[in-house]
Write a protein that binds this DNA or RNA. Structure first.
Lengths: 332, 332
DNA sequence: GTGAAAGCGCTAACAA
DNA sequence: TTGTTAGCGCTTTCAC
């Protein structure tokens, strides 16, 4: 019984007679044998580890990140890979380190900015990568993300169809826009485009995730634009406070104010009233990211490029027809 | 110039003449040389990777987990280690896999239950580990956690000192108790012990993290025990809804109802009013966990055993003297 | 203070 | 279908 035979039984890379296979498997079981990961990686030039770069920066909402991370780890395990956790604060050097030392076979990069300094590096690295998010120049990259442009459009369309003429986007904290984070920008663009296309007034404002900030932001917003009857929120942590603030301001949801969110379904359903929303399918995106990487690793000729997961809107209890009193036409 | 010389320059494991050292470092810089991680691990029997087992189970609050994870990664990097992310749903087999294949050098295990099935395994594995959390039998283990017993005691003492005689603990979701998660149990025990010691009435109830659940739980609680004037919350996601519910029920904080939380300081400070709290120093705990592991890896004779980070209470705006109207003595 | 050489435990090409 | 063998790229002992 040669060592190579064992190796081949375990990897299935060549055909083995049933008897030998069984004998090997039995021995493996009895001895509790596990191949040494480093030796295997050294010999095969594959570590079977993926790097996941998670942002730990201002304004990122943690539960969503965790949902991505979970999906990535779970999917990676399905393809017999492990996941090395990198924080974005190591920046370029972290990516260089883990790829040049061959610690990992491939990279999943989250929280991509429009002009992300890591993007040129990713093009050069001798290693496949997938971005969760879309930078300005996607040449040579594989990106996957929710179609935030369409998500915002659908929100505006839904509200406009209900007769709302004055709509606001309550966005992410301003730091996120300042960094030119892709998803926030694409949402904003979709919102503006749809408002213009539908001929309704669209106002945008960032919002920090504290109760006072929500109170202040919404207060000023409604003071400056009293005719607003529809709100689109892309900022998970403020959803709770926002509902509270609207109550305090005497605006009932949805009778006086229709509310839409771009967030995970379970978050939308947990609110009172349940929110009409465009779902942010973190599981699906994380899974697709890993599957794209695995395909690349296996040398499949994958059509690189940008994959946008279609936006799916679910109408729930937080949106209804615009109140008559406010339905005089207002144009942008 | 022998390969070994380069190795020694990089590791500093034997003295090198300044000239050779400089020459090597210059060459490394120019060529952008990085040692191959697998080869290094194979030869040295050290992967320089730690495993972090993160729970993704019912009732765990995500931002806190992320804070732990960040602290672990950041600290690990300071000691030149990387972090492999495991989810708790792989259970024992995940730990066996990464340790027996020598993928990692050591383990950080979070979300430990009182009778955790992984604990016996950790004792047997040929690899150091640190638990964040404390199981029932800590023989041979290294554990680190906040002193939740003392945390609860301090909350009760603070409220009792302010003249409150009837106090409730609004705990984690019941699934967390059902799993006998260590931190929840120790908090409960500390709450009961302190209430008894101080001769005040202590009522405990779990609470699910939805608005309706909070409304229901608190409603029933105050109906059954109208004399309650002090609340201790160990359940971060319900803090916002709870403040809202109390407002709806016409109980002002702190005039009618004093409120204490066991949570991260920034969470307490973000509320309106700012909450008196015992801090949950996830950074500190995560950092200490990694440092304990590194010490073990370096063969330091570390006093294994349980390290409880002392509870630190900060009084803020959510607690005050018990209202006169309710201050008739009530005993348990 | 430096170099030479023997592995670390696998995989994969080559032989049979 | 199986065995033999040459590395993979380092670290570390041993010799100088």
């Amino acid at each position: 019984m040669a060592a190579s035979t064992v190796s081949y039984v375990l990897s299935g890379k060549r055909s083995i007679s049933p008897e030998t296979r069984d004998r090997v498997q039995e021995a493996v079981r009895v001895l509790g044998y596990r191949p040494n990961a480093s030796a295997r990686a050294l010999a095969s030039n594959r570590s079977n580890v993926l790097a996941l770069v998670i942002p730990l920066r201002a304004g990122m909402h943690v539960p969503v990140l965790m949902q991505f991370a979970t999906a990535v780890v779970t999917t990676a395990r399905r393809y017999d890979h492990d996941v090395l956790l990198l924080t974005a604060d190591e920046g370029r050097s972290g990516l260089e380190r883990v790829s040049q030392s061959a610690l990992v076979d491939a990279l999943v990069v989250m929280d991509v900015e429009l002009h992300d300094e890591r993007v040129p590096l990713l093009r050069e690295l001798p290693m496949p990568s997938v971005l969760i998010g879309v930078p300005a120049d996607t040449e040579g990259l594989t990106c996957i993300d929710l179609d935030f442009f369409a998500a915002a459009e659908q929100c505006v369309d839904h509200l406009t169809d209900l007769g709302h003429h004055s709509i606001a986007l309550l966005g992410t904290p301003s730091a996120v826009y300042a960094r030119q984070t892709g998803f926030a920008h694409r949402t904003l663009a979709g919102f503006q485009a749809a408002a213009e296309r539908r001929g309704v007034m669209g106002i945008e404002t960032p919002c920090e995730p504290t109760f006072d900030a929500v109170l202040g932001t919404v207060g000023e917003l409604l003071e400056a634009h009293p005719g607003i009857t529809g709100l689109v929120v892309q900022n998970e942590p403020i959803i709770g406070p926002l509902l509270d603030v609207l109550r305090r301001l005497g605006r009932r949801v949805p009778e006086d104010m229709s509310l839409m969110a771009i967030c995970a379904d379970d978050v939308a359903e947990r609110q009172v009233p349940q929110l009409s929303s465009v779902t942010l399918p973190a599981d699906e995106i994380g899974q697709q990211a890993v599957e794209a990487l695995i395909a690349k690793l296996e040398g499949h000729r994958t059509s690189a490029g940008v994959t946008l997961v279609p936006a799916r809107l679910t109408a729930r209890a937080s949106t209804c027809a615009a109140p008559e009193a406010h339905s005089e036409r207002t144009t942008a």
